[in-house]
């Protein structure tokens, strides 16, 4: 949990990790503001790739850093929000002020079918057969696994 920083020329990246709620956000905010105040970057990126949970405190965190970067005459980008986090962020208008970027295709095959412009595999592969991608998600006993085939389909709904 916390924030790591990568500073490259005028570009500061704050890599957030763990859960972002009201409690965690206040510490992250202080760390980012201190570092950005020292480095005075032209571009600040908030990297959410290692965040496992976010409630509306994350919106406040993004909005506050947007204002900070305006005060520093720089700009802000937000990287790698998960689908859940995007749903939270989309309740606010913050996506209109701050670019929401992705560094890698989304994890789920369903969503990635659209957003893989460089895909060279023939189209037939994109038919999305029900893949057992969630095999790590829990704890069925072996006997239950044998009855799993139908449920695998439902898992994606």
């Amino acid at each position: 949990m916390g924030v790591r920083f990568v500073l490259k020329d005028d570009h500061l990246t704050a890599i957030l990790s763990g859960e972002i709620d009201h409690h965690a956000a206040s510490g992250m905010r202080e760390e980012i503001d201190r570092k950005a105040g020292q480095a005075k970057p032209k571009l600040l990126t908030l990297d959410f790739s290692q965040v496992t949970f976010m409630d509306s405190s994350g919106i406040g965190l993004i909005m506050g850093r947007y204002r900070l970067m305006q005060a520093l005459r720089g700009s802000l980008t937000v990287l790698d929000l998960s689908q859940q986090m995007k749903r939270v962020v989309n309740l606010s208008g913050v996506g209109q002020l701050v670019p929401l970027e992705n560094s890698r295709p989304p994890r789920k095959p369903k969503a990635s079918a659209k957003s893989k412009p460089k895909e060279t595999i023939p189209e037939t592969v994109e038919q999305e057969p029900p893949q057992p991608e969630e095999e790590s998600r829990d704890i069925y006993s072996h006997s239950e696994w044998e009855n799993q085939e139908k449920k695998e389909v439902m898992v994606h709904e």
């Binding site: 409630d55 405190s57 919106i59 406040g60 909005m63 506050g64 309740l91």
Partner: peptide, 22 residues
């Protein structure tokens, strides 16, 4: 109301909106 908050400027005022939509 969305965006209404008495919690200072780091609070987005979207707590109830999130509860409603989730």
């Amino acid at each position: 109301e969305p965006l209404f908050s008495t919690g200072g400027e780091e609070r987005a005022g979207l707590g109830f909106s999130v509860m409603e939509s989730f």
